[in-house]
């Protein structure tokens, strides 16, 4: 049922990278996604490289200048419970707490959550779809109720399944990547691959590279961040619609901010239109209604996911109203 593969558990990052540079090597951290993919034969694997022994990659530390560095092996549960993250990076703590189920949050890691494979049932199932090297997207004319409304490029209609990535993107986090060529960083916002750029991959990691950490900028007192997720059942489910908002507020006026959607597109989807709509505005009914219209502007729903338009609209309204109310309460 599973392919034959070898298993290594390196002692050092360098050793791990050496293994990962080999053809057919796959990284194993929490394993909550990898094992399912192997069982479903989503991709081939020759060598499983377990990095669970690299304890230096686990944990949250404050860095000079006031930001946080979160090791890639930090579990989702640890992130959702971490006092500093809860206090200064609320959207991330909320996003983490909305992931899957308690068991999976205890096992799954931040790095894994960013690098997880899409949940499209055609991709996971016995369908040789475009993302697996085939020439058909089965979702396009098929059962696409859980698929995207933005960013398919007309090729692949997955939604990116991560709840932490939209929050990190909204919080302007950087992802730290280590590989054979050393260390590099890039904004989380740019970390995921649009289908039109390459339909066969989800992240810009090159062979041998792994995510080693995520860096968050120093907290801003005026930044209010939230993550909201709507799903078909209340736990152990991916987003039908979700949004991470990180707004710099002056009273209930939005000075600036980022809005990143989940359940909307093959990558965490930054909604510049919503940002433009609310920037410099007071969160009154008119702004909120305009933001709700903006969130689905340009959306191209499929036959079975038109519901996502009212869903995203309603969700943005609810979230902005909540922020408006709590800003009022704070003031």
């Amino acid at each position: 049922m599973m392919a034959h593969f070898s298993y290594v558990r390196p002692r050092s990052l360098k050793e791990a990278i050496g293994h990962l540079a080999e053809n057919g090597a796959r990284v194993h951290a929490g394993g909550t996604d990898l094992l399912g993919c192997l069982r479903d034969q989503v991709f081939d694997v020759r060598k499983v490289v377990s990095i669970s022994g690299l304890s230096a990659m686990r944990g949250v530390e404050q860095v000079a200048g006031g930001g946080l560095r979160i090791g890639a092996l930090t579990t989702i549960a640890e992130i959702s419970e971490h006092p500093l993250i809860r206090k200064h990076y609320t959207a991330l703590a909320q996003g983490a707490s909305e992931v899957a189920s308690p068991q999976l949050r205890n096992q799954g890691t931040l790095g894994g959550n960013l690098c997880q494979k899409p949940r499209c049932w055609y991709y996971r199932g016995e369908f040789h779809c475009m993302r697996k090297g085939g020439d058909v997207c089965y979702a396009a004319g098929g059962e696409n109720q859980f698929h995207c409304i933005f960013g398919s490029g007309g090729r692949c209609f997955i939604v990116h399944p991560s709840d932490t990535a939209p929050a990190l993107s909204a919080l302007d986090a950087q992802v730290e990547i280590t590989g054979p060529g050393g260390l590099r960083t890039m904004p989380v916002e740019n970390f995921h691959v649009h289908p039109e750029d390459d339909v066969l991959r989800e992240t810009w990691l090159e062979r041998g590279e792994i995510v080693t950490a995520v860096r968050l900028p120093a907290p801003q007192a005026s930044l209010k961040s939230t993550y909201r997720k709507i799903r078909a059942r209340r736990a152990w489910d991916f987003a039908l619609a979700g949004a991470a908002l990180a707004l710099e507020l002056d009273g209930d006026r939005v000075v600036d901010g980022r809005v990143v959607l989940s359940g909307a597109a093959p990558v965490p989807w930054r909604s510049l239109l919503v940002e433009d709509t609310i920037r410099g505005k007071t969160l009154d009914d008119r702004t909120i209604d305009a933001a709700a219209d903006a969130v689905v502007k340009g959306a191209r729903p499929l036959a079975k996911n038109k519901y996502k338009l009212p869903l995203f609209r309603g969700m943005i309204q609810e979230e902005l109203r909540r922020i408006h109310q709590s800003a009022g309460a704070d003031g």
């Binding site: 189920s101 949940r119 049932w121 055609y122 199932g125 016995e126 369908f127 089965y138 004319g141 098929g142 059962e143 078909a232 059942r233 209340r234 736990a235 152990w236 489910d237």
Partner: peptide, 26 residues
């Protein structure tokens, strides 16, 4: 149960994630 009626007729949600049993929060 969701069958891929338009094309292959195969059941697409044949697992405990995609076939949504109520959880304790539901």
């Amino acid at each position: 149960r969701i069958l891929d009626a338009n094309r292959t007729g195969k059941m697409v949600n044949r697992n405990w994630h995609d076939y949504k049993l109520p959880t304790s929060l539901d």
